[in-house]
Amino acid sequence: MKFAVIGGTGLIGSQVVRNLNAAGYEALPHSKSTGVDVISGEGLDGAVAGADVVVNLTNSPTFDEASPDFFRTSMDNLLAASRKGGVGHFVILSIVGVDQVRELDYYRAKVLQEEILAAGPLPYSIVRATQFMEFMDSVLSWTADGDTVRLPATPIQPIAAADVAEAVTQVAVGAPLNGIRNVAGPEVFTLDELGRMTLSARGDGRTVVTDPTAGMFAAVQGDVLTDRGAHLASTRYADWLS
């Protein structure tokens, strides 16, 4: 089988390419750096031509109101090129609970991406993952102020990027789901608790203050970003930190 991994040089994409090639498949990474632009369409036809499966791991450069346009244009271009190229399976990566957080522009944009794929011309699979462990530093930076970091007590079920990549790989080599598979880390924490664990493990003396209004995740109600019934990965957060 031949795979075209769009966004194949990023955090998840590079690992998916490595996993597929190690398993004996032919997987090629494509991104702006390789001359493929999902917005202008440059290089797309050549990237997907002859591929059995397209794995789309591109992401919007912003999380604001511009993100829906990115996903609309990129998906329209990719699906058109994939149909022309005879692709038989189209895979994307999304977010657990994404359809339950309509307050966030980026989450609405990811729902739009899912809807475009489901309504499109190709057999498809959607892998929804919980929040990446690797993103915790960014989350801490959003609301840091001197010696204090403010975080809400939003329930989070962090998953390692390597486990996400493995889940995407498994779905990509299988039959199209024509639906969604949820994957998640093995443990649930509140975000403020996760922040304290992270700072402590790194010897960072800043204090985490619980603030229900702080940062992007303040818009999340309840535990919609977790799923104890998902396919659970094995990497625990404390082990990943160490």
Results as ranks from 00 to 15, higher is better:
161 A>V: 15
181 R>L: 15
155 P>H: 04
163 D>A: 14
102 R>P: 12
50 G>T: 06
8 G>H: 12
96 V>R: 12
49 A>M: 12
227 D>M: 09
98 V>K: 02
155 P>G: 04
224 V>A: 09
198 T>W: 06
109 A>H: 11
100 Q>D: 11
88 G>L: 03
113 Q>T: 11
150 R>P: 13
177 L>D: 05
209 V>N: 06
11 L>A: 14
237 Y>D: 14
61 P>W: 02
185 G>D: 06
145 D>I: 07
165 A>F: 13
61 P>F: 13
44 L>H: 01
184 A>S: 12
75 M>Q: 15
238 A>T: 13
139 V>H: 11
182 N>A: 10
232 L>Q: 10
107 Y>G: 12
35 G>K: 11
154 T>I: 07
69 D>T: 12
4 A>F: 03
22 A>H: 08
45 D>V: 10
7 G>D: 07
93 L>G: 04
22 A>V: 03
127 V>F: 08
88 G>F: 01
135 F>P: 02
143 T>Q: 15
64 D>Q: 07
46 G>I: 00
78 L>T: 04
167 A>P: 00
36 V>E: 00
103 E>H: 12
149 V>D: 08
82 S>L: 03
201 A>L: 11
31 S>Q: 05
77 N>V: 10
30 H>I: 14
214 A>E: 04
45 D>E: 15
106 Y>L: 05
41 G>P: 00
81 A>F: 11
9 T>N: 00
91 V>C: 10
228 R>C: 02
1 M>Q: 12
131 Q>A: 11
84 K>M: 04
217 F>D: 01
150 R>C: 12
76 D>N: 14
118 A>Y: 05
44 L>Y: 08
128 R>P: 02
210 T>K: 13
204 D>T: 09
134 E>R: 12
99 D>Y: 06
29 P>H: 11
183 V>C: 01
53 V>T: 15
100 Q>C: 10
232 L>S: 04
128 R>Y: 13
134 E>Q: 15
165 A>V: 11
130 T>F: 07
6 I>D: 00
194 L>M: 13
230 A>D: 07
64 D>L: 07
55 V>E: 02
108 R>G: 01
67 S>F: 03
222 G>I: 01
155 P>Q: 03
13 G>P: 08
112 L>I: 10
171 V>N: 11
209 V>G: 02
200 S>F: 05
121 P>G: 12
223 D>W: 04
154 T>W: 02
82 S>G: 12
241 L>A: 05
73 T>C: 06
90 F>K: 11
159 I>H: 13
34 T>F: 04
229 G>Y: 02
37 D>W: 00
106 Y>E: 05
23 A>Y: 04
133 M>Q: 08
156 I>L: 12
232 L>P: 07
219 A>H: 11
67 S>K: 01
111 V>E: 04
133 M>N: 11
110 K>P: 07
115 E>I: 03
103 E>G: 08
104 L>P: 07
69 D>R: 13
81 A>D: 13
128 R>K: 15
235 T>Y: 09
180 I>P: 06
16 V>L: 06
195 G>L: 05
83 R>T: 14
110 K>V: 09
218 A>H: 06
76 D>A: 15
236 R>F: 09
197 M>F: 05
203 G>N: 00
139 V>A: 15
10 G>R: 09
148 T>Q: 04
59 N>Q: 07
196 R>A: 14
24 G>D: 01
7 G>P: 07
237 Y>H: 13
24 G>V: 10
63 F>M: 13
